[in-house]
Amino acid sequence: MIIAERKPIEEILGLLSKHQKVLVLGCGGCVTVCLAGGEKEVGILSSQLTMARSKEERPLEIVQKTIERQCDFEYFEGIRHIVKDVDAILSLACGIGIQTCAEAFPDKIVWPGVNTKFLGVNLNVGEWAERCQACGQCVLDKTGGICPVARCSKSIFNGPCGGSQDGKCEVSPDTDCAWALIHDRLTRLGEVDSLREILPVKDWSYSRDGGPRKLVREDLELESGK
């Protein structure tokens, strides 16, 4: 899932400073699960914002809404009537949702209410960790299901490097060495010899190498387009 964190309140208050009426728009997807921008966070943030502005004697009217997902255009259709009446939208979706929102409402100011952090996993209540960098050509089959791109601080493919100590990465004692994890897991599975295989260098052309990526699946396309 995409992990995000709400922006500091002063920053959001700054973004909204010139508005009198805004829509605080939550997303029912990833940001609901990571407690950054779902219905409840929309409620709490809206309370904080209205109180802060009331204290400054510059009231802010807030409309609250959370849609199914902000990364799909169709879910914005049902809120057009709300958007029409507000000065701006504060989107609590991830960076993808915020941009889709802005694209859906080209004449409306859309502000980001969260910082999108990474693609990750929920380890514990209030604790998340990065797991994938969407490199475009997954190598998990070669690495015991542990990603060297996202979880090795140097994204190397021939680790561990000299900085690996007692299973930890030299970057921080809190960070597991991905290559120690890979080695341990493959040992456990009786597959450690597979690491002896000499692999060709990773083809980064599937990653950011060619600029923004796009995926088109002709088998799924309909004549009407989006």
Binding site: K40, I44, S47, Q48, M51
Partner: peptide
């Protein structure tokens, strides 16, 4: 009790 209840109350 929820943070949201407290915040709504303080409105």
């Amino acid at each position: 009790i929820d943070v949201l209840f407290f915040m709504k109350a303080l409105e």
